[in-house]
Design a protein around this nucleic acid. Sequence first.
DNA 1: ACAAAATGATACAATTATAGTATCATAATG
DNA 2: CATTATGATACTATAATTGTATCATTTTGT
Lengths: 145, 145
Amino acid sequence: MKLITRNTDYAVRALCFIAEQKQVVISADQLVKSLEMPRPFLRKILQTLNKEGLLSSSKGKDGGFALAVSPGKISLTDVMKIFQGSIRLNECKFKKSDCPYISDCLLKKKIDLIDKEVRAKLKAITIASIIKKEVNVNDQEVRGL
Amino acid sequence: MKLITRNTDYAVRALCFIAEQKQVVISADQLVKSLEMPRPFLRKILQTLNKEGLLSSSKGKDGGFALAVSPGKISLTDVMKIFQGSIRLNECKFKKSDCPYISDCLLKKKIDLIDKEVRAKLKAITIASIIKKEVNVNDQEVRGL
DNA sequence: ACAAAATGATACAATTATAGTATCATAATG
DNA sequence: CATTATGATACTATAATTGTATCATTTTGT
């Protein structure tokens, strides 16, 4: 059981990496070399992030990808939604007419509660909050980890 | 994204149903008729629950399945473990040597925290806690919902 | 104009997980 | 010994995940 799939994970790491660099525009090749990911898969992911508005892209020499949204405003749920669709943990199989527990299913209610909490917590995790340590510890720059 | 797969869901509902009946031993056929589930699939699930020790079984006429553990001692995590394997939400793809965030990955740590909380909450959900309402509301019996 | 360096679009493929089905064997009971 | 139940096991269909591969397009420098 995974909460986060590979492409979400790659996307998050790519976003973090881009956010951490002094350069604004980062090419797919740079990312492939720095983070270890299969190139075509990463490219597809970057294209998706571009389409979805989290990255902007430029072609040709010195082209690549740049953050289109500030790291503090990109949350894990944003990325998960893009690559994993809805992140409802629940989705009862049973239609109201079928479910033997009909209108109020305690199981569903309990899971719903957990679901809401998880979503809130995932939303609170932003790219900025993930890279915070690497970028800024005691107000010192510690790039190039 | 589902936290709970179909077989876990069926298993939980079957366990709840068995726990709710006055009869101790419930046959697969009874379950199929009452809860709406494909018979062969449910049978496989019941066999698994038997093997895993949550149910006991008896063959022949008036045979079937009975709870082998009290409803208060069967938690959602028990059932999930059986049908969905480990319920770690995390499992970082990157081996220590590969991961660009090396020994301390903030993403992983944050997800780990969520993971622990979710597991604790799932563990707190027992069969007893799910059927409580149906079996016992204001100390009245409200069977046959 | 043209080659090089980048992304864009899109179709295909392998692997794994999920959600089942189907069949025959075995045990208990009357 | 037939009936009624579960046990064991092999098979299958669908969808999701995790990619690969190819060609088109745009930008830039010479």
